[in-house]
Design a protein around this nucleic acid. Structure first.
Ligand SMILES: [Zn+2]
Ligand SMILES: [Zn+2]
Ligand SMILES: [Zn+2]
Ligand SMILES: [Zn+2]
Lengths: 149, 149
DNA sequence: GAATGATATGATACAACATATCATTTTAAA
DNA sequence: TTTAAAATGATATGTTGTATCATATCATTC
Protein backbone atom coordinates (compact mmCIF):
# COMPACT_ATOMS: atom_id res chain seq x y z
CA UNK A 1 0.00 0.00 0.00
CA UNK A 2 1.33 3.43 -0.92
CA UNK A 3 2.08 5.99 1.75
CA UNK A 4 -0.86 8.01 0.55
CA UNK A 5 -3.24 5.08 0.81
CA UNK A 6 -1.87 4.17 4.23
CA UNK A 7 -2.45 7.72 5.39
CA UNK A 8 -6.01 7.73 4.11
CA UNK A 9 -6.72 4.44 5.84
CA UNK A 10 -5.23 5.66 9.09
CA UNK A 11 -7.11 8.95 8.85
CA UNK A 12 -10.32 7.02 8.38
CA UNK A 13 -9.54 4.89 11.40
CA UNK A 14 -8.71 7.99 13.43
CA UNK A 15 -12.03 9.57 12.56
CA UNK A 16 -14.01 6.49 13.48
CA UNK A 17 -12.32 6.40 16.86
CA UNK A 18 -13.19 10.06 17.41
CA UNK A 19 -16.81 9.62 16.48
CA UNK A 20 -16.61 11.71 13.34
CA UNK A 21 -16.85 10.74 9.71
CA UNK A 22 -14.24 10.93 6.98
CA UNK A 23 -16.74 11.37 4.17
CA UNK A 24 -15.87 10.92 0.51
CA UNK A 25 -15.44 14.65 -0.05
CA UNK A 26 -13.25 14.99 3.02
CA UNK A 27 -11.25 11.99 1.94
CA UNK A 28 -10.77 13.47 -1.51
CA UNK A 29 -9.58 16.83 -0.18
CA UNK A 30 -7.14 15.10 2.14
CA UNK A 31 -6.04 12.88 -0.75
CA UNK A 32 -5.40 15.99 -2.84
CA UNK A 33 -3.09 17.42 -0.20
CA UNK A 34 -1.33 14.09 0.30
CA UNK A 35 -0.80 13.55 -3.41
CA UNK A 36 0.36 17.05 -4.24
CA UNK A 37 2.97 16.86 -1.48
CA UNK A 38 2.96 20.59 -0.96
CA UNK A 39 1.01 23.37 0.65
CA UNK A 40 -2.01 24.58 -1.31
CA UNK A 41 -4.46 27.41 -0.85
CA UNK A 42 -8.17 26.67 -0.58
CA UNK A 43 -8.71 27.94 -4.12
CA UNK A 44 -5.79 25.93 -5.46
CA UNK A 45 -7.52 22.93 -3.93
CA UNK A 46 -10.74 23.86 -5.71
CA UNK A 47 -8.85 23.72 -9.01
CA UNK A 48 -6.94 20.57 -8.09
CA UNK A 49 -10.15 18.85 -7.05
CA UNK A 50 -11.83 19.76 -10.31
CA UNK A 51 -8.88 18.46 -12.34
CA UNK A 52 -8.48 15.31 -10.27
CA UNK A 53 -12.07 14.23 -9.71
CA UNK A 54 -13.86 15.80 -12.66
CA UNK A 55 -16.48 17.55 -10.60
CA UNK A 56 -16.24 20.94 -8.96
CA UNK A 57 -16.45 21.64 -5.26
CA UNK A 58 -17.51 25.09 -4.08
CA UNK A 59 -14.83 27.05 -2.17
CA UNK A 60 -17.15 27.19 0.84
CA UNK A 61 -17.11 23.40 1.05
CA UNK A 62 -13.35 23.29 0.71
CA UNK A 63 -12.98 25.72 3.61
CA UNK A 64 -15.38 23.73 5.74
CA UNK A 65 -13.62 20.49 4.97
CA UNK A 66 -10.23 22.05 5.70
CA UNK A 67 -11.57 23.25 9.05
CA UNK A 68 -12.72 19.74 9.82
CA UNK A 69 -9.41 18.20 8.80
CA UNK A 70 -7.53 20.74 10.92
CA UNK A 71 -9.63 19.93 13.95
CA UNK A 72 -8.74 16.28 13.49
CA UNK A 73 -5.05 17.23 13.11
CA UNK A 74 -4.98 15.68 9.66
CA UNK A 75 -4.14 18.98 8.01
CA UNK A 76 -2.36 22.12 9.18
CA UNK A 77 -2.85 25.70 8.12
CA UNK A 78 0.21 27.81 7.45
CA UNK A 79 -0.79 31.27 8.64
CA UNK A 80 2.08 33.04 6.96
CA UNK A 81 1.07 31.88 3.48
CA UNK A 82 -2.64 31.11 3.86
CA UNK A 83 -2.04 27.60 2.65
CA UNK A 84 -2.86 24.15 3.92
CA UNK A 85 -0.64 21.08 4.16
CA UNK A 86 -1.35 17.50 5.13
CA UNK A 87 0.02 16.44 8.48
CA UNK A 88 3.10 14.27 8.21
CA UNK A 89 2.18 12.33 11.32
CA UNK A 90 -1.09 10.84 10.14
CA UNK A 91 0.27 7.31 10.23
CA UNK A 92 1.88 7.77 13.64
CA UNK A 93 0.34 6.47 16.83
CA UNK A 94 1.44 9.21 19.20
CA UNK A 95 -0.69 12.21 20.08
CA UNK A 96 -0.05 15.22 17.93
CA UNK A 97 2.07 17.89 19.59
CA UNK A 98 2.44 21.41 18.26
CA UNK A 99 5.00 21.29 15.48
CA UNK A 100 7.07 23.72 13.47
CA UNK A 101 7.07 24.23 9.73
CA UNK A 102 10.00 24.77 7.41
CA UNK A 103 8.75 26.39 4.23
CA UNK A 104 10.95 26.46 1.14
CA UNK A 105 10.60 29.92 -0.36
CA UNK A 106 11.73 28.60 -3.72
CA UNK A 107 9.68 25.44 -4.41
CA UNK A 108 7.04 25.82 -1.67
CA UNK A 109 7.74 22.40 -0.21
CA UNK A 110 7.05 22.14 3.50
CA UNK A 111 8.63 20.02 6.22
CA UNK A 112 6.87 19.52 9.53
CA UNK A 113 9.35 19.05 12.37
CA UNK A 114 9.64 18.98 16.12
CA UNK A 115 12.26 21.37 17.38
CA UNK A 116 14.27 20.21 20.41
CA UNK A 117 12.46 20.74 23.64
CA UNK A 118 15.53 22.51 25.00
CA UNK A 119 15.55 24.95 22.11
CA UNK A 120 11.88 25.71 22.58
CA UNK A 121 12.56 26.28 26.27
CA UNK A 122 15.40 28.66 25.48
CA UNK A 123 13.02 30.50 23.20
CA UNK A 124 10.41 30.59 25.92
CA UNK A 125 12.91 32.05 28.38
CA UNK A 126 13.77 34.80 25.93
CA UNK A 127 10.10 35.59 25.57
CA UNK A 128 9.44 35.61 29.32
CA UNK A 129 12.32 38.04 29.75
CA UNK A 130 10.50 40.33 27.37
CA UNK A 131 7.41 40.13 29.55
CA UNK A 132 5.38 37.99 27.18
CA UNK A 133 4.17 34.42 27.47
CA UNK A 134 4.39 31.99 24.56
CA UNK A 135 0.99 30.50 23.83
CA UNK A 136 1.72 28.35 20.79
CA UNK A 137 5.15 27.34 19.53
CA UNK A 138 3.86 26.71 16.00
CA UNK A 139 6.66 28.46 14.14
CA UNK A 140 6.61 28.92 10.40
CA UNK A 141 10.07 29.56 9.11
CA UNK A 142 11.22 30.93 5.81
CA UNK A 143 13.79 28.44 4.53
CA UNK A 144 15.31 26.81 1.48
CA UNK A 145 15.02 23.04 1.06
CA UNK A 146 17.86 20.70 0.11
CA UNK A 147 17.04 20.91 -3.57
CA UNK A 148 16.84 24.69 -3.63
CA UNK A 149 19.92 25.60 -1.59
CA UNK B 1 9.70 65.98 22.54
CA UNK B 2 7.44 62.92 22.65
CA UNK B 3 8.71 59.51 21.62
CA UNK B 4 6.50 59.68 18.59
CA UNK B 5 7.85 63.04 17.50
CA UNK B 6 11.41 61.89 18.13
CA UNK B 7 10.76 58.84 15.95
CA UNK B 8 9.32 60.94 13.14
CA UNK B 9 12.29 63.28 13.27
CA UNK B 10 14.76 60.41 13.24
CA UNK B 11 12.88 58.71 10.40
CA UNK B 12 13.07 61.91 8.41
CA UNK B 13 16.80 62.16 9.06
CA UNK B 14 17.26 58.50 8.08
CA UNK B 15 15.45 59.06 4.79
CA UNK B 16 17.53 62.13 3.92
CA UNK B 17 20.71 60.16 4.52
CA UNK B 18 19.45 57.42 2.23
CA UNK B 19 18.51 59.78 -0.56
CA UNK B 20 14.78 59.14 -0.29
CA UNK B 21 12.00 61.38 0.90
CA UNK B 22 9.70 61.03 3.87
CA UNK B 23 6.81 62.85 2.26
CA UNK B 24 3.84 64.18 4.21
CA UNK B 25 1.70 61.17 3.35
CA UNK B 26 4.43 58.76 4.31
CA UNK B 27 5.00 60.68 7.50
CA UNK B 28 1.30 60.52 8.32
CA UNK B 29 1.08 56.78 7.75
CA UNK B 30 4.13 56.21 9.93
CA UNK B 31 2.66 58.57 12.52
CA UNK B 32 -0.55 56.53 12.53
CA UNK B 33 1.34 53.34 13.29
CA UNK B 34 3.45 55.05 15.96
CA UNK B 35 0.44 56.63 17.66
CA UNK B 36 -1.78 53.56 17.59
CA UNK B 37 0.97 51.51 19.24
CA UNK B 38 -0.26 48.31 17.68
CA UNK B 39 -0.24 46.36 14.47
CA UNK B 40 -2.79 47.47 11.90
CA UNK B 41 -3.88 46.12 8.55
CA UNK B 42 -3.63 48.31 5.48
CA UNK B 43 -7.38 48.84 5.50
CA UNK B 44 -7.40 49.64 9.20
CA UNK B 45 -4.83 52.29 8.35
CA UNK B 46 -7.10 53.67 5.64
CA UNK B 47 -9.80 54.13 8.29
CA UNK B 48 -7.41 55.47 10.89
CA UNK B 49 -5.96 57.94 8.41
CA UNK B 50 -9.42 59.18 7.50
CA UNK B 51 -10.38 59.63 11.15
CA UNK B 52 -7.08 61.25 12.10
CA UNK B 53 -6.40 63.53 9.14
CA UNK B 54 -9.88 64.16 7.82
CA UNK B 55 -9.09 63.17 4.27
CA UNK B 56 -9.16 59.73 2.76
CA UNK B 57 -6.21 57.87 1.31
CA UNK B 58 -6.80 55.13 -1.25
CA UNK B 59 -5.77 51.62 -0.15
CA UNK B 60 -3.37 51.43 -3.07
CA UNK B 61 -1.45 54.40 -1.70
CA UNK B 62 -1.38 52.91 1.77
CA UNK B 63 0.11 49.69 0.41
CA UNK B 64 2.72 51.61 -1.58
CA UNK B 65 3.65 53.73 1.40
CA UNK B 66 3.87 50.65 3.63
CA UNK B 67 6.20 49.06 1.07
CA UNK B 68 8.36 52.15 1.14
CA UNK B 69 8.43 52.28 4.93
CA UNK B 70 9.34 48.59 5.05
CA UNK B 71 12.22 49.07 2.66
CA UNK B 72 13.53 51.78 4.94
CA UNK B 73 13.08 49.48 7.96
CA UNK B 74 10.73 51.99 9.56
CA UNK B 75 7.84 49.54 9.52
CA UNK B 76 7.61 45.75 9.62
CA UNK B 77 5.00 43.49 8.11
CA UNK B 78 3.69 40.63 10.24
CA UNK B 79 3.14 37.86 7.72
CA UNK B 80 1.08 35.71 10.05
CA UNK B 81 -1.58 38.39 10.54
CA UNK B 82 -1.17 40.59 7.46
CA UNK B 83 -0.64 43.59 9.65
CA UNK B 84 1.97 46.29 9.88
CA UNK B 85 3.76 47.67 12.92
CA UNK B 86 6.18 50.54 13.35
CA UNK B 87 9.77 49.52 14.05
CA UNK B 88 10.75 49.97 17.67
CA UNK B 89 14.33 50.81 16.70
CA UNK B 90 13.67 53.94 14.69
CA UNK B 91 15.48 56.14 17.18
CA UNK B 92 18.43 53.75 17.49
CA UNK B 93 21.71 54.32 15.70
CA UNK B 94 22.65 50.71 15.00
CA UNK B 95 21.89 48.94 11.76
CA UNK B 96 18.66 47.01 11.81
CA UNK B 97 19.06 43.26 12.21
CA UNK B 98 16.28 40.77 11.58
CA UNK B 99 14.13 40.71 14.67
CA UNK B 100 11.40 38.56 16.17
CA UNK B 101 7.86 39.56 17.03
CA UNK B 102 5.78 38.65 20.05
CA UNK B 103 2.13 39.13 19.21
CA UNK B 104 -0.46 39.24 21.98
CA UNK B 105 -3.41 37.21 20.80
CA UNK B 106 -5.67 39.05 23.22
CA UNK B 107 -4.98 42.78 22.78
CA UNK B 108 -2.93 42.65 19.55
CA UNK B 109 0.00 44.52 21.05
CA UNK B 110 3.34 43.60 19.52
CA UNK B 111 6.82 43.55 20.96
CA UNK B 112 9.85 43.52 18.68
CA UNK B 113 12.76 41.67 20.26
CA UNK B 114 16.14 40.17 19.49
CA UNK B 115 16.32 36.56 20.53
CA UNK B 116 19.70 35.37 21.85
CA UNK B 117 22.13 34.56 19.10
CA UNK B 118 22.75 31.18 20.74
CA UNK B 119 19.06 30.33 20.68
CA UNK B 120 18.80 31.26 17.02
CA UNK B 121 21.84 29.10 16.33
CA UNK B 122 20.26 26.17 18.15
CA UNK B 123 17.18 26.69 16.02
CA UNK B 124 19.32 26.80 12.91
CA UNK B 125 21.00 23.54 13.85
CA UNK B 126 17.62 21.89 14.26
CA UNK B 127 16.64 23.09 10.84
CA UNK B 128 19.87 21.97 9.18
CA UNK B 129 19.37 18.51 10.67
CA UNK B 130 16.04 18.44 8.88
CA UNK B 131 17.80 19.23 5.62
CA UNK B 132 16.55 22.79 5.32
CA UNK B 133 18.36 26.10 5.55
CA UNK B 134 16.96 29.02 7.48
CA UNK B 135 16.76 32.09 5.25
CA UNK B 136 15.15 34.61 7.57
CA UNK B 137 14.89 34.29 11.34
CA UNK B 138 11.96 36.72 11.50
CA UNK B 139 9.79 34.68 13.85
CA UNK B 140 6.27 35.72 14.68
CA UNK B 141 5.07 34.13 17.87
CA UNK B 142 1.60 33.77 19.25
CA UNK B 143 1.83 35.07 22.83
CA UNK B 144 0.01 36.83 25.63
CA UNK B 145 1.39 40.13 26.91
CA UNK B 146 1.84 41.04 30.58
CA UNK B 147 -1.55 42.68 30.79
CA UNK B 148 -3.38 39.79 29.19
CA UNK B 149 -1.77 36.85 30.98
C1' DG C 1 11.50 80.53 -14.93
C1' DA C 2 9.94 76.97 -18.57
C1' DA C 3 10.91 72.28 -20.30
C1' DT C 4 12.00 67.74 -19.01
C1' DG C 5 12.29 63.49 -16.54
C1' DA C 6 11.82 61.09 -12.21
C1' DT C 7 9.19 60.21 -8.20
C1' DA C 8 4.85 60.03 -5.79
C1' DT C 9 -0.05 59.70 -5.51
C1' DG C 10 -4.87 58.95 -7.31
C1' DA C 11 -8.46 56.23 -9.54
C1' DT C 12 -10.35 52.13 -11.23
C1' DA C 13 -10.66 47.46 -11.93
C1' DC C 14 -9.95 43.05 -10.62
C1' DA C 15 -7.72 38.86 -8.38
C1' DA C 16 -7.22 36.08 -4.27
C1' DC C 17 -8.68 34.80 0.23
C1' DA C 18 -12.46 34.10 3.49
C1' DT C 19 -17.09 34.17 5.83
C1' DA C 20 -22.29 34.63 6.47
C1' DT C 21 -26.56 32.67 5.59
C1' DC C 22 -30.07 29.95 3.97
C1' DA C 23 -31.41 25.79 1.11
C1' DT C 24 -30.88 20.99 0.07
C1' DT C 25 -29.06 16.45 0.62
C1' DT C 26 -27.28 12.67 3.25
C1' DT C 27 -26.81 10.05 7.41
C1' DA C 28 -27.97 8.14 11.90
C1' DA C 29 -31.23 7.20 15.24
C1' DA C 30 -35.75 6.45 17.07
C1' DT D 1 -40.67 5.48 8.17
C1' DT D 2 -40.37 9.60 10.56
C1' DT D 3 -37.26 12.77 12.57
C1' DA D 4 -33.14 15.22 13.94
C1' DA D 5 -28.45 16.03 13.10
C1' DA D 6 -24.68 16.44 10.08
C1' DA D 7 -22.81 17.52 5.65
C1' DT D 8 -22.85 19.87 1.42
C1' DG D 9 -24.52 23.30 -2.11
C1' DA D 10 -25.64 27.94 -3.67
C1' DT D 11 -25.39 32.74 -3.36
C1' DA D 12 -23.90 36.90 -1.69
C1' DT D 13 -20.67 39.66 0.43
C1' DG D 14 -16.57 41.01 3.11
C1' DT D 15 -11.45 41.30 3.33
C1' DT D 16 -6.80 41.52 1.53
C1' DG D 17 -3.84 42.61 -2.14
C1' DT D 18 -2.19 43.72 -7.10
C1' DA D 19 -2.24 45.60 -11.95
C1' DT D 20 -2.47 49.45 -14.69
C1' DC D 21 -3.01 53.80 -16.35
C1' DA D 22 -3.71 58.78 -15.20
C1' DT D 23 -2.38 62.82 -12.69
C1' DA D 24 0.32 65.56 -9.57
C1' DT D 25 4.55 66.92 -7.43
C1' DC D 26 9.43 67.58 -7.25
C1' DA D 27 14.25 68.21 -8.96
C1' DT D 28 17.34 69.24 -12.70
C1' DT D 29 18.86 71.45 -16.78
C1' DC D 30 18.63 74.82 -20.12
ZN1 LIG E 1 1.08 17.37 12.00
ZN1 LIG F 1 12.75 24.00 -2.35
ZN1 LIG G 1 12.52 46.98 13.67
ZN1 LIG H 1 -2.24 41.77 25.50
Amino acid sequence: MSNVQASIKQADQHCREHGVRLTDKRKQVLLSLLQSEKAMSAYELVDYYKAEFGESMPPMSVYRILDFLQEEHLVHKLNSTNKYVSCSHITCDHDHEITQFLICGECQSVKEININKSTIEALQNNIEEAGFHLVSPQLEMNCLCENCI
